[in-house]
Amino acid sequence: MERIAEHPILGAKEKGREVEFTFDGQRLKGFEDEPIAIALKANGVMIHRYTKKEHKPRGIFCAIGRCTDCVMVVDGKPNVRTCVTPLKEGMDIRTQDGVEAAEMKEGEGA
């Protein structure tokens, strides 16, 4: 989804420095300290996890850390609420499958 370059009321948003991170092994860019979920959204990532029982896709729902639908495996730790966790340089972010990192398809990985 597109970032808003200039907002009619809020103007241009101040952003942190640009950093690189990986999403399921793929190198992506975002801005330091913005929520992980926002950086992913800017890169077009909608699916954050698959549920344990039904294996259904989930993404951002409340965006304020309440609903826990957007949790992912971040630097090896599962159930991290990506909508309220700041992005850092070099983070390893993976789609969560149940409560574990989803297995990466062949050919993926840094």
Partner: peptide
């Protein structure tokens, strides 16, 4: 609320 958070706090559509 999520929509507001995304566009007004984090500058993304």
């Amino acid at each position: 609320g999520a929509a507001q958070t995304m566009m007004n706090l984090h500058g993304i559509q």
